[in-house]
Simulated assay, not measured.
Amino acid sequence: MTTDLTILYEHPAWFVPLFAALDRRGVRYEALHLSDHRFDPADPKPPSPVVLSRVAMSSFLREADHAIFYAEALFAHWSACGARVINGAEVIAVDRSKARQLSLIAGLGLGIPRTRIVHRAADLPAAAREIGFPLIVKANIGGSGAGIVRYQSADELAQSIADKTTPESVDRVLLVQEYIPARDGIVTRIETLDGKFLYAIDIESPADSFDLCPADACEIGRGPGAIGMTRADPAPKLIDAAERIARAARLDVGGIEVMIDDRDGTAKFYDVNALSNFVAKPLDVLGWDPHEQLVDYLEAAIAAKRT
């Protein structure tokens, strides 16, 4: 091993700030692009003592030959060979399944949108009758708002099924979920590191846009002012809940998304995202750069592997 840290990534632009922070700190790392990667399952040597996953669940939008399931197998192998894999195979298994995320969150006694899980478009109407309209149909593996459609009525859903325009998920699993009117149109994303609160932002999006990715690269093509992002100070009970979710999901670094149901004021947690690109223009929004804390965490992981 010639490096202390290996970073597996998919998107070529999202991690420039992370690489810059590592360079400033003099961390010996190698960045490997997943599209060009292969591994030998009989090779017992991981590439470095510490591995960081930067696998985006939205990668299927950019490449038909995405690496979501490949990365899960790769990280399981490297972990078995002794590497400390940050956001490894167990985390990907949760990150790639909104159904598993909701089960985990509900199991902690926290609020989630009323949901039914199906694996065939033909089963959507029966699930919809249990949920009621308006509702959304959501792909189990999504990202950047992909695979989410709102339906106002049973007739509209039936027509979509007949036209074969309902969402599709790369794993064939779909969620039928009540439409939650978010208070003030705001979703709060609570970022965690090592199971602890790092920062939070309120994300405000016009109309029914479901693409609320806060990173710089996600802004491309939207036009100015498409979404609003401000620093948030969530109530302690929301922070505590997000930390509990992160620990239960074994999430090393990642965001938990929650909205306040405008109908009754209850918190509804609905998404666990293990790919924290962090907020665009963090110095403007937060007043500090969370990449520095992430590098602290990585350096501590490297030091622990040396002892």
Results as ranks from 00 to 15, higher is better:
Leu110Ala: 05
Ser79His: 15
Ile201Tyr: 13
Arg244Leu: 12
Ser97Glu: 11
Ala76Thr: 05
Asp123Lys: 02
Ala128Ile: 12
Ala80Ile: 00
Asp211Glu: 05
Ile201Cys: 14
Asp271Lys: 15
Gln101Val: 09
Asp262Arg: 03
Ala249Trp: 04
Leu175Thr: 01
Ala162Trp: 06
Ala242Asp: 03
Arg150Pro: 00
Ser59Gly: 07
Ile117Met: 08
Gly254Thr: 09
Thr230Leu: 00
Asp211Ser: 14
Cys213Asn: 15
Ser48Ala: 15
Asp233Gln: 11
Ala67Gln: 14
Ser103Ala: 15
Thr266Val: 03
Ala71Gln: 08
Val176Met: 04
Ser53Pro: 10
Arg54Met: 10
Val118Pro: 01
Ala71Pro: 09
Ser144Phe: 04
Ala106Lys: 10
Ile201Leu: 10
Asp23Gln: 11
Leu294Lys: 03
Trp78Phe: 11
Glu90His: 09
Ser58Ile: 00
Arg96Met: 12
Ile112Tyr: 01
Thr307Glu: 10
Asp240Met: 06
Gln152Cys: 01
Glu30Lys: 13
Ala80Gln: 08
Pro282Trp: 12
Ile239Ser: 03
Ile141Phe: 06
Thr115Glu: 02
Ile117Ser: 05
Ser59Ala: 13
Asn277Ile: 01
Phe75Gly: 10
Ile190Pro: 01
Val279Gly: 01
Leu5Lys: 10
Arg24Val: 02
Ile68Phe: 12
Trp14Gly: 15
Thr2Val: 05
Leu157Asn: 04
Tyr199Thr: 08
Val94Glu: 07
Asp95Asn: 15
Ala122Val: 12
Gly223Leu: 07
Gln159Arg: 14
Thr2Ala: 07
Ser97Ala: 11
Gly88Thr: 08
Lys45Ile: 09
Asp296Asn: 15
Ala83Gly: 04
Ala93Asn: 08
Arg250Glu: 14
Ala242Cys: 03
Pro41Met: 03
Ala154Trp: 09
Gln101Asn: 01
Leu286Asn: 01
His37Asp: 12
Ile7Cys: 07
Asp264Glu: 05
Glu219Phe: 08
Leu8Met: 07
Arg54Asp: 02
Tyr270Glu: 01
Ala207Cys: 05
Ile161Thr: 08
Val55Ile: 15
Ala300Tyr: 06
Arg120Ile: 00
Arg250Asn: 13
Val176His: 02
Val173Gln: 06
Val91Thr: 08
Ile260Ser: 00
Leu135Cys: 11
Leu275Val: 07
Leu157Tyr: 11
His77Arg: 09
Lys305Tyr: 00
Gln177Ile: 09
Gly185Leu: 01
Lys45Trp: 05
Ala139Glu: 00
Ser276Ala: 14
Leu283Asn: 12
Tyr70Pro: 00
Phe69His: 12
Asn140Tyr: 14
Pro282Ser: 10
Asp208Gly: 12
Ala139Leu: 06
Pro47Gly: 10
Arg114Gln: 13
Asp43Glu: 03
Glu191Met: 06
Gly221Met: 09
Pro234Glu: 06
Leu108Asp: 11
Ala154Lys: 10
